[in-house]
């Protein structure tokens, strides 16, 4: 049973390689459990973007500046992140692929800092369209004292809502993924895009 179900998933991945590209975004605020879902995708050999390009670019900018990014630095950072997302998008030619955040996350980023979306972002959003957007509902960690150490839950929630709003602004109708285990969420996502679920 396990083998046949996983065979079906492998067959679906292979068959999709001869078909036009389908792109699915997985997004959400910090503490939404995104990395766990991405890890599940990787574990089952489902094509996906492993790391969010923003992380490395952010590290590079901080290193170059020798300090925290200020308002005047954030445009340059955002432009570079946008370029990376576009390259990822264009690089994918066949089959389905999951993305660790997408171009419209930049709307949330800009709003986060009180900036208006750039012309480049607006243009990229019109040209590069994803097939489905999955928003991971925040994991309820309100009672988790660990969370309070690095950021208040209130601000985590604000960031999350701004990211969701960004996708609406970009003209998407996101699918909300309930706050459950990574396995459940992966199954939920795959069912939504009609890809066979892995058997565990």
């Amino acid at each position: 049973m396990t083998t046949s179900q996983n065979d079906r998933l492998a067959a679906a991945i292979e068959a999709a390689q001869n078909q036009p590209p389908r792109r699915f975004v997985i997004t959400g605020g910090p503490s939404a459990g995104k990395d766990d879902v991405i890890a599940e995708l990787i574990r089952h050999g489902i094509p996906c973007m492993e790391t969010e390009p923003g992380r490395e670019i952010y590290r590079k900018h901080r290193q170059r500046l020798g300090r925290h990014l200020r308002t005047e630095d954030r445009r340059e950072y955002a432009a570079e992140v946008l370029e990376a997302f576009i390259a990822e998008f264009e690089g994918h030619k066949h089959g389905f692929r999951f993305y660790n955040r997408g171009i419209p996350d930049s709307y949330g980023w800009e709003r986060f800092f009180g900036l208006a979306p750039t012309i480049q972002l607006e243009k990229a959003n019109r040209v590069y369209r994803y097939d489905t957007v999955f928003v991971l509902d925040p994991l309820d960690t309100f009672e988790d004292p660990d969370d309070i150490v690095w950021a208040k839950e209130r601000e985590i929630r604000r960031v999350h809502e701004l990211i969701v709003q960004g996708y609406y602004d970009a003209g998407y109708e996101p699918t909300f993924v309930p706050a459950e285990s990574a396995e459940y969420r992966l199954d939920y996502i795959l069912t939504n895009v009609r890809i066979p679920k892995p058997q565990r």
Binding site: G29, D35, E52, G54, W109, F112, W150, A151, I156, I163
Partner: peptide, 11 residues
Amino acid sequence: LPADVFAWELA
């Protein structure tokens, strides 16, 4: 702390 730019910014 999650490896996430938004989390880093919040921190």
